[in-house]
Simulated assay, not measured.
Amino acid sequence: MTHRPDIVVLGAGYAGLNAALRLALNPHVTVTLIDPSDHFTERVRLHQLTTGRPEVSVTHPLSVLLRGTRIRHLAARAVDLDRAGRQLRTDDGRTVSYDRLVYALGSVTDTRAASDTRAAQDAAESGPAGASERAYTAESAAELGKRLLDGPGRLAVVGGGLTGVELAAEIAESHPEWEVRLLTAGTLGAGLSGKGRTHVRTTLGAMGVRVREGDRVASADDVDADVVVWSAALRPRTELAAAAGLELDAAGRIVVDRTLRSASDPAVYAAGDAAATSLRMACATAMPTGAHAAASVLAGIGSRPTRPLAFRYVMQCISLGRDDGLIQPVHGDDSPRGSVLTGRPAAFVKEQVVRSTVRSLRVAASLARAR
């Protein structure tokens, strides 16, 4: 009897879930998806949870997405990776063997340099229940939304990247009674064009957000505010990979070749924010790298040539509240073009882009069911 290769995917985020669904298109392999959550979270919508609106939902049951796909979901956390034995051990005591492993545990907000956000880091790892009264991250946005309802005060968002901008705009628009500041060590929206940065500054200013550029904050303890929303950086969730001896780069991401195969273990592939590619950490890169990792795994199993990852950026999309936004067209290397789309049209395009991610996952699931 011909052996059916066992493929394990770690992580049910944008990269991991997309990889698992693409792998399931091949009826000659078995696919196991390991993730402690029973749902897929739209991370790019987390800032919307701060509005406190009951109609906002950012999760989708994995049982629905995976139904009929032959993907086995283990609702557990991987705690040990035995590369020599090609086995994973989970926190509920199970041992899972694999022929190929796709590591796609993604990233979380990096709060290691912010002492007052240790509880927020716990929330990022284990859920919003651990969020502190003062410090929050995007991962604990639901708890932040509840905190904002307790009464007006002073709030500071630390980080001038796209996530920080979206959080500041969403909070200022939905809670105008709060005094909102945005603090960034560098330039606000550094990857945007001059027109893009001007629109972001103007829009935030109209919402009452005070922006301070060139303000390096070492810790939330240093911020004079009732609430601090830490959004300064992301860190890859590669502790398991490091403990197993996989080679990591200086940023802590798994070193891979151009096919997304680990440079230190031919049975391991990495996708999304955990992979050391030249791409920035984002949903826009996680989805295609998940698909490419799956294609590389299947090509390797079938002794077919593997193709190098080819990716070109198209645009950056930013929400500025519910009725405004910024669409920044970019060159293939992610450098900004001069033109921008703003206002309600940009908000509409941003929403369609966000919806397209879930649509594409549902399409992949439908195709897998048909096999």
Rank of each mutant, 00 (worst) to 15 (best):
A294W: 04
V297I: 05
A310S: 14
Y313P: 08
L279A: 06
L320S: 11
R280P: 15
L279N: 05
C283V: 11
C317E: 04
T285G: 01
M281K: 14
G302D: 15
A295N: 09
Q316R: 15
A293W: 03
V297C: 13
R280H: 08
L279P: 10
I301G: 08
S296I: 02
D324A: 15
P288A: 00
A293V: 01
G290P: 10
G302P: 00
M281T: 07
M315W: 10
S278R: 13
Y313D: 02
V314K: 13
L298C: 12
G290E: 01
L326K: 10
G290W: 01
P308N: 11
G290C: 10
H292V: 03
A295C: 06
S278W: 11
S296K: 06
R322S: 11
A282M: 05
T285L: 02
S319Q: 10
M281D: 03
A295E: 14
G325K: 07
C317G: 10
F311W: 04
I301Y: 10
R280V: 10
S296C: 07
A286V: 03
L279Y: 08
G321M: 01
G290S: 13
P288M: 04
D323Q: 13
L320V: 13
A299I: 06
G321Q: 00
V297G: 03
M287S: 02
H292K: 06
P288S: 04
G290A: 10
A286G: 13
A282W: 01
A295M: 05
C317V: 15
R322F: 09
R280D: 09
A295Q: 13
M315Q: 12
M315V: 11
D323R: 14
R312A: 15
I318D: 01
S303V: 02
A295W: 01
M315I: 02
R322V: 09
L309G: 07
M315N: 14
R322N: 11
P305M: 10
T285S: 01
A310N: 02
T306M: 13
I301P: 01
A294S: 12
S303I: 03
I301D: 00
A286M: 07
S319E: 14
M287F: 15
R307T: 08
F311Q: 00
H292Y: 05
G325W: 04
R304L: 15
V297E: 04
F311A: 01
V314W: 09
G325M: 04
P305I: 04
S296L: 04
A294N: 08
D324W: 11
H292D: 03
G302F: 02
L298S: 14
L298R: 12
A284I: 04
H292R: 03
P308Y: 08
P305H: 10
R304P: 02
A310C: 07
V314D: 12
D323E: 14
L279V: 07
D324K: 12
A299F: 07
R312C: 09
D323L: 11
T289A: 06
S278K: 08
Y313E: 05
S278I: 09
L279S: 06
M281F: 06
A286H: 01
A284P: 03
A291C: 07
